[in-house]
Simulated scan of single mutants.
Amino acid sequence: MFDAGGVLTRPIGGRWNPRYDFEAIVAAHHPQVRPDRFPDAIASGQRFLDAASTTPDRTDYHRTILAALGIAEPSQRLLRQLRAPAAGPVIELYPDVRRVLADLHRRGIRMSVVSDNWAGLEATFAGLDIAHYFRGFAISEVLGCRKPDPRMYAEGSRLLGLEPHECLFVDDDPQLVAAARALGYQAVTLDRDARSGPAGQVITSLDELAVS
């Protein structure tokens, strides 16, 4: 069971939300908005996400940022453009992902994705040509809850047809890994910046799964 962002994928442009072309799209509709207002507005959007018990509607998230920019009544055209797929990729795979997923798949290991994300992640992964490796996707917006809610983990293991103790959960957030262990899952933290970590608790590359 894999988390997505920070484990399998990373954002192009250096941030997850909003996507890399957010400022350019808004500026095309509202050129009067000063560029120096975007950082505080984006921080307001992040607080909105953090306060929600599940992944909120993407348009509500965009409205929060736009309101902080002084755009109280954004046009439907602007909102549609922000919600539409970007002109280019917004995320990319870490270098170790494709070879490790292929190796685990060849070994007959069942895999699922458990991610605090908006609906549509499966299509994004299909575009990256890795969706076929997974039995299914447990997505917070779809389930109406976020990790560490037990329902997220339970859906991930249900998709695999396995009991919690038969599953290994991989996430880059140690608190979410601890929550999985408390529910009876095997779990490890992926810390790509660490040189090493406690054996059986921290890995620094997905390659460590391929040899386990």
Results as ranks from 00 to 15, higher is better:
Leu78Thr: 13
Gly13Lys: 01
Gln32Cys: 04
Gly6Gln: 02
Pro11Gly: 06
Gln76Arg: 14
Ile71His: 12
Pro89His: 03
Asp21Phe: 02
Asp50Thr: 07
Ala4Met: 05
Leu78Gly: 11
Gln76Trp: 10
Asp57Lys: 06
Ala52Phe: 07
Asp60Ile: 05
Gly13Met: 05
Thr59Ser: 13
Pro31Glu: 04
Pro56His: 07
Gln46Gly: 08
Ala41Ile: 08
Ala86Gln: 03
Ala67Asn: 15
Leu82Met: 11
Phe22Lys: 03
Asp50Tyr: 04
Pro11Cys: 05
Pro11Met: 09
Phe48Asp: 06
Arg15Ala: 05
Gln46Ile: 14
Phe22His: 01
Phe38Asp: 06
Pro74Asp: 13
Gln46Leu: 14
Thr64Met: 14
Val26Ala: 05
Pro74Ser: 14
Arg80Lys: 14
Leu8Arg: 00
Ser75Phe: 14
Gln81Glu: 15
Leu78Met: 14
Arg15Glu: 03
Pro89Val: 00
Thr54Asp: 15
Trp16Val: 02
Leu69Asp: 08
Thr9Leu: 09
Arg47Pro: 03
Ala41Leu: 10
Phe48Pro: 01
Asp40Pro: 03
Gln81Lys: 11
Thr55Tyr: 07
Leu82Pro: 08
Ala52Leu: 08
Arg63Lys: 15
Asp60Gly: 07
Phe48Ser: 06
Ser44Lys: 13
Arg77Asp: 15
Gln46Met: 13
Pro31Met: 06
Tyr20Ala: 07
Arg83Ile: 05
Thr9Phe: 03
Ala86Asn: 04
Arg47Gln: 10
Asp21Tyr: 03
Ile65Phe: 08
Gly88Glu: 13
Leu82Asn: 05
Asn17Met: 12
Pro31Asn: 05
Ala51Lys: 07
Phe38Met: 11
Ala27Pro: 02
Arg37Lys: 11
Asp60Cys: 06
Gly88Ala: 10
Ala87Gly: 12
Pro35Phe: 07
Ala87Lys: 12
Gly5Trp: 01
Arg10Thr: 09
Val7Asn: 05
Arg63Trp: 09
Val26Gln: 01
Glu23Val: 14
Leu79Trp: 09
Ala52Gly: 08
Thr64Gly: 08
Gln76Glu: 15
Ile42Glu: 07
Phe38Val: 10
Thr64Lys: 14
Ala86Trp: 00
Gln76Ile: 08
Pro35Ser: 10
Ala28Glu: 14
Arg47Asp: 09
Tyr20Glu: 07
Pro89Lys: 03
Arg19Ile: 05
Leu8Ala: 00
Asp21Ala: 04
Gly5Asn: 07
Arg19Tyr: 07
Glu73Asp: 15
Ala51Ser: 13
Ala43Ser: 11
Gln46Arg: 15
Ala43Leu: 12
His62Ser: 08
Asp57Leu: 08
Ala51Val: 04
Glu23Tyr: 04
Arg15Ile: 02
Gly14Tyr: 02
His62Glu: 05
Asp36Gly: 07
Gly45Arg: 00
Ala72Asn: 14
His29Glu: 13
Asp21Pro: 06
Asn17Ala: 09
Phe22Asp: 03
Pro35Leu: 10
Ala27Tyr: 10
Thr59Val: 15
Val7Gly: 00
Glu73Cys: 09
Leu66Pro: 13
Arg34Leu: 15
Pro18Ile: 01
Gln81Asp: 12
Gly6Asn: 01
Leu69Met: 14
Gly6Lys: 03
Pro56Tyr: 07
Tyr61Pro: 04
Gly45Leu: 02
Thr9Cys: 02
His62Cys: 04
Gln46Asn: 13
Tyr20Thr: 01
